[in-house]
Write a protein that binds this DNA or RNA. Structure first.
Length: 256
DNA sequence: ATTGAGACCTGTCGGC
DNA sequence: TGCCGACAGGTCTCAA
């Protein structure tokens, strides 16, 4: 991908949830890829022009990469963007629900970017530890589940993994986020467990190829309402509640 | 400032 | 069979 060059950019369906910036295709053309990066759920492609191509897959977005210079023989109705690259490759962005988006951000604008610059730590980096999580939750009036979905607390946790991590940590999603904050500067035991659980859940997810990879049913609580809790020795059953309009799955017996 | 509700979009599924 | 409503996901906008 590095040094690849954008030869042609086709917007087949430009009306995604957030519209493309003006002259999107023209600004990309002839640019080469300097670096490919990621922050939270955002994909960042640094270009030779100094601009960064910021992309988000929303919930149903995906990329298809093929050798050759022409788009798929039969374009899918949800193929919204096609990048023709050199050396010869075609990258197609497909997104049935159109929640994904793309933006071009200048070097100057990256630094103070309204969303990107406020993202919390990367959960799998050493920067993310119990003390950092505890500090981010300090004074928060929201529930623990809602705090985990806040990308400023920690970057990249979505609705599924928020439930999964809380179950592994044995913490109730309804508990106030501030109750895991530090006491006398030292992170509480629950912050230590939650930090470890977040990392473990994400590592497992990556190993399995993501939430929607084949062989479903590997979640411990997500979409398991009414089923028995998988925690060793726990005889509880999984409940579903709604928090800020989203489903939360948890075991009321072993998550405190 | 922080928080929550609503909007956005479409495929799928259950119920009638 | 077909229609209809509910629901899923992530983030932005707007209003308390």
């Amino acid at each position: 991908m590095q040094d690849a060059r954008f030869e042609r950019v086709l917007l087949r369906r430009p009306d995604l949830r957030t519209s493309f910036p003006r002259k999107f295709a023209a600004r990309l053309r002839t640019q080469t890829v300097v670096r490919v990066d990621r922050r939270g759920k955002y994909l960042l492609i640094e270009l030779s022009s100094g601009d960064t191509l910021v992309m988000h897959l929303g919930m149903s977005g995906s990329f298809n990469v093929e050798a050759g210079s022409s788009a798929r023989a039969e374009a899918d109705k949800h193929d919204h963007v096609v990048f023709e690259m050199s050396p010869s490759a075609t990258i197609t962005f497909n997104d049935p629900r159109r929640f994904g988006f793309m933006d071009l951000v200048t070097r100057k604008a990256m630094a103070g970017h309204a969303t990107l610059s406020k993202l919390g730590p990367e959960p799998l980096s050493p920067d993310f530890d119990a003390a950092v999580l505890a500090r981010a939750c300090k004074g928060k009036k929201t529930s623990l589940k809602v705090a985990l979905l806040d990308q400023r607390v920690v970057a990249g946790i979505g609705n599924i993994y928020a439930s999964e991590a809380l179950h592994r940590a044995g913490l109730s999603p309804r508990r106030k986020a501030s109750t895991i904050a530090t006491r006398g500067g030292a992170p509480l035991d629950s912050a230590v467990r939650l930090t470890a659980a977040i990392k473990a859940v994400l590592i497992d997810a990556i190993d399995c190829g993501g939430s929607y990879a084949a062989d479903g049913g590997r979640f411990r609580v997500y979409e398991r309402e009414g089923n028995h809790c998988l925690t060793k020795g726990c005889r509880g059953s999984i409940k579903r509640i709604t928090q800020i309009g989203r489903s939360t799955f948890f075991c009321p017996v072993c998550q405190k």
